[in-house]
Amino acid sequence: MISVQTDDFDVGAEYEALRSSGSGTGAIATFSGLVRDSGDVSGVTGLFLEHYPGMTEQVIQGLIDEACQRWDIRQARVIHRVGRLALSDQIVFVGICSAHRADAFSACEFIMDALKTSAPFWKKEITGDSEHWVEQKASDVVRTQAWE
């Protein structure tokens, strides 16, 4: 299931939902991403996140479908927040349940890496008196290419 939302999310509730996915689940891997200061400029107080409604959900569904083909996973949950966020706010959640840990780890990491370079989200950093769009990082592209 995919949610793109302005509201915060509860990792504990998401974990419990994954845990109730059935008796065949032996492993749950979760990742939570938080808003941080990218270091590009000083005095960052938060972010504004823009996205492309409709395409965003389609791209993420495509990543989940690919993960399902590559690994033995039973359920995938992706949440991404948009709008105004403060430093340390939760921004993204990926949760995977599988029979075994290796598939859960791999699928979780793949979806997170590929999301960063293919899902249409854009971050704008906000400082006290200005704002600027964050540039894509070469290291993120390298991580995604490593899964090809």
């Binding site: 492309y52 899902a119 249409p120 971050k123």
Partner: peptide, 25 residues
Amino acid sequence: QAMAKHSTQVHAGDEVAFFPPVTGG
């Protein structure tokens, strides 16, 4: 709403979106 290339053909009724490299996650 699907990633395309600059060489992709476009047709009447298509939605064509332009944007900078993405920075979510």
